Measured scan of single mutants.
Amino acid sequence: DVEEQIRRLEEVLKKNQPVTWNGTTYTDPNEIKKVIEELRK
């Protein structure tokens, strides 16, 4: 469920934690926001 994935990513973003997505770890909040934007398409 895309909405659920977006919610999880936004939670991690608020906590300033790194996100691992498709084998890539993102630590930059701007990169995480880009992943969220991609999911919304």
Rank of each mutant, 00 (worst) to 15 (best):
Asp1Ser: 13
Asp1Lys: 11
Val2His: 09
Val2Tyr: 09
Val2Thr: 06
Val2Asp: 03
Val2Phe: 13
Val2Gly: 03
Glu3Ile: 12
Glu3Arg: 12
Glu3Met: 13
Glu3Ala: 12
Glu4His: 10
Gln5His: 06
Gln5Tyr: 07
Gln5Thr: 13
Gln5Ser: 08
Ile6Thr: 02
Ile6Lys: 01
Arg7Gln: 09
Arg7Lys: 12
Arg7Ser: 07
Arg8Ala: 14
Arg8Lys: 12
Arg8His: 13
Arg8Glu: 11
Arg8Tyr: 15
Arg8Trp: 15
Leu9Asn: 01
Leu9Tyr: 02
Leu9Ala: 02
Leu9Gln: 00
Leu9Ile: 10
Leu9Gly: 01
Leu9Lys: 00
Glu10Trp: 04
Glu10Thr: 07
Glu10Pro: 00
Glu11Trp: 02
Glu11His: 06
Glu11Ser: 08
Glu11Pro: 01
Val12Met: 15
Val12Thr: 09
Val12Gln: 15
Val12Tyr: 15
Val12Arg: 14
Val12Asp: 12
Leu13Gln: 04
Leu13Asn: 02
Leu13Met: 12
Leu13Asp: 01
Lys14Asp: 13
Lys14Leu: 12
Lys14Asn: 11
Lys14Cys: 11
Lys15Thr: 14
Lys15Asn: 13
Lys15Pro: 02
Asn16Phe: 13
Asn16Asp: 04
Asn16Ala: 07
Asn16Pro: 05
Asn16Val: 04
Asn16Gln: 10
Gln17Gly: 11
Gln17Glu: 14
Gln17Lys: 08
Pro18Phe: 06
Pro18Leu: 08
Pro18Lys: 13
Val19Glu: 06
Val19Phe: 11
Val19Ser: 02
Thr20Lys: 13
Thr20His: 15
Thr20Trp: 15
Thr20Pro: 03
Thr20Val: 14
Trp21Lys: 11
Trp21Met: 15
Trp21Cys: 15
Asn22Arg: 04
Gly23Trp: 00
Gly23Ile: 00
Gly23Gln: 02
Gly23Asp: 14
Gly23Met: 00
Thr24Trp: 04
Thr24Glu: 14
Thr24Ala: 09
Thr25Cys: 04
Thr25Leu: 14
Thr25Pro: 02
Tyr26Ala: 01
Tyr26Pro: 01
Thr27Phe: 09
Thr27Val: 06
Thr27Pro: 02
Thr27Met: 06
Asp28Met: 02
Asp28Ala: 03
Asp28Arg: 01
Asp28Ser: 05
Asp28Asn: 05
Asp28Gly: 04
Asp28Trp: 01
Pro29Ala: 09
Pro29Ser: 06
Pro29Gln: 08
Pro29His: 07
Pro29Val: 10
Asn30Leu: 12
Asn30Thr: 09
Asn30Val: 13
Glu31Tyr: 03
Glu31Val: 07
Glu31Pro: 01
Ile32Arg: 00
Ile32Ser: 01
Ile32Asn: 00
Ile32Gln: 00
Lys33Val: 11
Lys34Met: 12
Val35Ile: 15
Val35Leu: 15
Ile36Asn: 00
Ile36Arg: 01
Ile36Tyr: 02
Glu37Leu: 09
Glu37Asn: 06
Glu37Pro: 01
Glu37Met: 08
Glu37Gly: 04
Glu37Ser: 06
Glu37Tyr: 03
Glu38Phe: 12
Glu38Trp: 11
Glu38Leu: 13
Glu38Pro: 00
Glu38Ile: 12
Leu39Gly: 00
Leu39Glu: 01
Arg40Lys: 11
Arg40Cys: 03
Arg40Val: 05
Arg40Thr: 04
Arg40Leu: 09
Arg40Asn: 03
Lys41Thr: 09
Lys41Gln: 13
